[in-house]
Design a binder for these strands. Structure first.
Lengths: 222, 222
DNA sequence: CGGACCCTTGATAGAACTCAATTCATGTGG
DNA sequence: CCACATGAATTGAGTTCTATCAAGGGTCCG
């Protein structure tokens, strides 16, 4: 009865929307701070004070279950905006993977979250919508893709994010990739060697992946 | 090094944010249309023309992979707003599960998606942020929860959505629940009987669940 | 009464996890 | 400069969880 007819029309070139935003937004920055690798920028449960634009480095956004299970909902790269929340308290933590520099904005200046009929700048709107698109995509990945497809998808995503033609630098360890893809670090490792054995990638080092057949990788994720 | 200290502070009573919106928004409705159960309201790949407020019935939002795998990213209930997209074309389909009535708005009236520095109404902003929160929650579920926890979570979500104290009416078949939770319909069925055997629920009929121990269900999902 | 769905249950298979051992890379100090 | 310690990544063996395949039972409706 239901067809999926039209959906081939929607052939965008990039599969993963960028979350970066015009530097213009940086002008309203109030603070500029640095964090060492491994540090928290904000923590789950803390009151929301600011939003951030990442100037430098790589950040992970994570949530914890009480028994210690962790899930990473996003990685952020320079230019990305993060820290947007619906509630007063952060529902996630943001942690620096590498040393980072972030610009902070008082949310109330940019995003009047509480008052009714308040207006929101176009930039923030774009950030929110892109995050939403990104989440939808990731939902599909976690819900209906197998381990190999997830890892292939991850590599393509990382490649697009750092628009490197052939060489992808991973800033994060395998555990982080695992927690992002809903797998274990061992499975990540196995899938990478499988992709290697299939001739789609080459592992120049554990954090450096050479793309040998991008098209084949993209075919795996449609 | 990293603590998850603060996150117990964030003890909201509801785990699943409502996506419904003040009826006020309905006033700007342009069209009011009805669809039979099983019909598409809009399809993946179609150009975005409108946003919708569900007046009546239940809707599922789905995405398809080319090989037919389906994922349901959300269910919507009366009052919910859906159809918000970052791009020109729908990245998802919306299908009526029951007979539905929806109010449609020209997106350009409510949400000026394209122009820069455009402003957005507070209502739309709230809808977007809540969808985002909702997605984050679901991401965690798909990434790090097992089958039993997912089904428990689903029951609690449905209970909150129709704020019924003890009796939950499911509008959707098992397949839909499965595609929402990233499982198979058989697993849904098994987990339901398991919850029944644990004494947490009772199955009055296949679409009608009585909550015997809501607290225990909530404990399963923290 | 018969047929179409939908749901449940069982048996089996397969994918990913867990646990454990090994290798590799990096950095430190003798 | 090399030995060694440390943390990260890979690999292997065995287990667990969920999917798959198949059969049977309910319920609604013509």
């Amino acid at each position: 009865m239901l067809t999926q007819s039209a959906h081939t029309a929607q052939t965008a070139r990039t599969y993963f929307p960028q979350l970066s935003v015009e530097p213009r937004l940086s002008e309203s920055a109030e603070t500029l701070s640095s964090h060492a690798a491994g540090c928290e920028i904000f923590a789950q449960g803390e009151p929301v004070r600011k939003m951030y634009r990442l100037e430098n480095g790589v950040v992970r956004i994570c949530r914890f279950l009480q028994d210690g299970r962790r899930h990473i909902s996003a990685f952020h790269f320079p230019g990305d905006v993060f820290g947007l929340e619906a509630e007063d308290c952060h529902s996630v933590s943001a942690e620096a993977i590498t040393p980072v520099r972030v610009a902070g904005f008082r949310t109330t200046n940019v995003v009047p979250m509480r008052g009714r009929d308040d207006q929101v700048t176009g930039d923030m709107w774009r950030v929110a919508l892109r995050s939403l698109t990104q989440s939808q995509e990731h939902l599909l990945l976690l819900g209906r893709r197998n381990a190999l497809e997830r890892v292939a998808s991850f590599i393509v995503e990382m490649a697009e994010r750092q628009d490197s033609a052939r060489l992808v630098e991973l800033a994060m360890p395998r555990v982080d990739i695992a927690d992002y893809l809903g797998l274990t670090l061992e499975t990540i490792s196995r899938m990478l060697t499988q992709l290697k054995d299939m001739g789609l990638i080459r592992l120049r080092s554990s954090r450096r992946i050479e793309l040998l057949d991008l098209e084949a990788l993209e075919d795996m994720i449609y």
